[in-house]
């Protein structure tokens, strides 16, 4: 049996929606009772349409927001009971927009050193060396150490974001739409990089995407979310070949395959 890396039990997240000062607050159920388990080395793809709660679920897994009910365990430890620095060493996010995820007023070097400084890493003399090694690992040129985010392209910035997430060597990385702000030719580079890193560093990914082709390419298992619930969860190839839930079928039926011989619309002629 593989080790369980992420175990989320009956996760619920409700947000109060204010309807004015004196009215009772209404509750919006963003995630309504999700149980999931991800083993070490797996890639769990979370798919669903906008507003289905996948980003909220990701933030719950990251421990950035407390669940209304249920709990998340990462490597056997409750994420919400972990100390801030411990949590940071266990699980890290990668965001969608590499233009807003890097502080524009800091150099790449200082962005990448920050996690080490925050962790009060003892060997401060080795910080720069480790930052430069990590830059190497994600394919960033060494001269970028002293450059600012606005001097890098979108793909390079996303590499910086990945390097920042990996420098403290977390076991789990949550990628929230890691390539949807990027061009296809850059997307393929980033996806390849994420794949390589997973093998090299033995990482566990939670990959959130609305792009089903990306999920199919990357994930080992896929969970389909619909209105705050996981409606179907299955190994990737099984799910894509034999979807069982109606919504999954609808979702898969909407995929536009980049092959003119496999059109989903009936065209004239």
């Amino acid at each position: 049996m593989a080790d369980t890396m992420i175990y989320g039990y009956d996760l619920v997240k409700e947000y109060p929606i204010s309807r004015g000062m004196f009215k009772r607050k209404e509750l919006l159920r963003a995630v309504g009772g999700v149980t999931l388990q991800v083993n070490k080395g797996e890639v769990l793809g979370l798919v669903g349409e906008s507003g289905c709660g996948k980003t909220t679920l990701a933030r719950l897994i990251l421990g950035m927001i407390p669940p209304t009910a249920g709990s998340v365990e990462i490597a056997g430890q409750n994420i919400n009971k972990l100390a801030r620095l411990e949590r940071a060493k266990t699980i890290q996010p990668i965001f969608q927009d590499p233009y807003s995820s890097l502080n524009p007023s800091k150099t790449i070097g200082s962005i990448l050193t920050l996690p080490l400084r925050i962790q009060r890493d003892r060997e401060s003399h080795s910080w720069e060396k480790r930052v430069r090694q990590t830059m190497d690992l994600v394919g960033l040129a060494q001269r970028m150490y002293n450059q600012y985010p606005n001097q890098l392209s979108g793909g390079q910035r996303q590499r910086v974001a990945i390097a920042r997430a990996l420098i403290t060597r977390p076991a789990v990385v949550v990628c929230d739409e890691p390539t949807s702000a990027l061009d296809v030719s850059v997307q393929s580079q980033i996806l390849n990089l994420l794949k390589e890193l997973r093998e090299e560093l033995n990482l566990t990914y939670v990959l959130i995407s609305h792009n089903l082709a990306v999920v199919q390419h990357m994930a080992t298992r896929v969970a389909v979310m619909y209105f705050g619930h996981v409606v179907e969860e299955e190994k990737t190839n099984i799910l894509f070949e034999e979807p069982k839930h109606e919504y999954t079928k609808k979702l898969l039926g909407s995929i536009l395959v980049p092959d003119p011989n496999k059109r989903i619309f009936n065209k004239k002629e």
Binding site: L62, M64, R84, L85, R87, A88, K89, I91, Q92, P93, F95, Q96, D97, S100, S101, L102, N103, L114, P115, I118, Q119, A161, R164, A165, T168
Partner: peptide, 14 residues
């Protein structure tokens, strides 16, 4: 709500 602030929280900044 900017991503880099969320990122800072994720890397454990107080």
């Amino acid at each position: 709500d900017l991503d880099y602030v969320t990122a800072a929280r994720a890397i454990g900044c107080s």
